[in-house]
């Protein structure tokens, strides 16, 4: 009896929708995706789509990324959706004693994220897709992966790794330029442009915490 009830429930509930990517690919999405993508959830609430055969256009996302996001959500469909909404809340007691960590990416997620690389730029594509779709878990995996790449590198190596051109943060900074204190303080905000530049070109272990 019990199985029957369950079956009826299972068969009556699935709601699938269609979405189309930037490059015109069409995908079916189910609850696993809708529940994890806040953007889609909001869209469905607002649009009140009766005809679920018309694909919802997602103009910002390439088919390959959309497909990957769907795979990710399918795998994570049973995860508790307990990732805190944002850091903005005043709840300062929440894990107040422990720094945020990025060494806690699961094995499956590690394998998943390996298909995206910095060289091809796909790692940034998937982060942008996660950001647009507002899939917290996927965004976290992508950002943690980049954080892990940055760790232990100096600014020169970071620029090299991500192909960032150096853009001297001199003008436009409303920081005091007191040449007397800059020698003492060592806080990079007090440096002049030239000093900064020279520091950026050499490994810079002289930041305040060192």
């Amino acid at each position: 009896m019990a199985t029957n009830v369950e079956e009826t429930y299972l068969y009556s509930s699935p709601t699938t929708f269609k979405v189309s990517s930037k490059d015109g690919e069409i995908f079916d999405i189910d609850d696993s995706f809708i529940n994890q993508s806040k953007t889609i959830k909001n869209m469905l609430n607002v649009l009140d789509i009766a005809d679920n055969h018309m694909p919802i256009p997602l103009q910002n996302i390439k088919g390959t990324m959309l497909n990957a996001a769907i795979v990710f959500c399918k795998y994570h469909k049973n995860d508790l959706l307990s990732i805190p909404d944002d850091e903005d809340e005043d709840d300062f007691e929440r894990d107040a004693y422990e720094p945020r960590r990025s060494d806690d990416i699961s094995e499956w997620d590690k394998e998943f994220i390996k298909q995206f690389t910095v060289e091809e730029g796909t790692l940034f594509d998937i982060i942008m897709a996660a950001n647009y779709l507002d899939i917290k878990a996927l965004l976290a995996v992508g950002c943690k992966t980049i954080a892990n790449m940055v760790r232990g590198k100096n600014s020169d190596q970071v620029r090299q790794m991500f192909n960032i051109s150096y853009d001297p943060p001199g003008e436009g900074l409303n920081t005091p330029r007191n040449s007397v204190t800059s020698k003492e303080s060592g806080d990079n905000q007090l440096l002049t442009t030239q000093e900064k530049e020279s520091r950026c070109k050499t490994p810079s272990p002289e930041l305040m915490y060192d």
Binding site: E87, P99, R100, R101, S102, V118, G121, T122, F124, D125, I127, M128, N131, L139, A140, C143, K144, I146, A147, N148, V150, R151, G152, K153, N154, S155, V158, R159, F162, N163, I164, S165, Y166, D167, P169, N188, K196, R199, C200, S204, L207, M208, Y209, D210
Partner: peptide
């Protein structure tokens, strides 16, 4: 697509996973 395409929010999220020593180092990148 490169890292400069990421939104401020995403970059800040990345920075939130590194410690403050590394964050100060990253502040010299650009």
């Amino acid at each position: 697509c490169d890292i400069s395409m990421l939104s401020d929010k995403s970059l800040i999220l990345i920075f939130s996973y590194i410690n403050h020593q590394e964050l100060l180092r990253c502040s010299l990148v650009c």
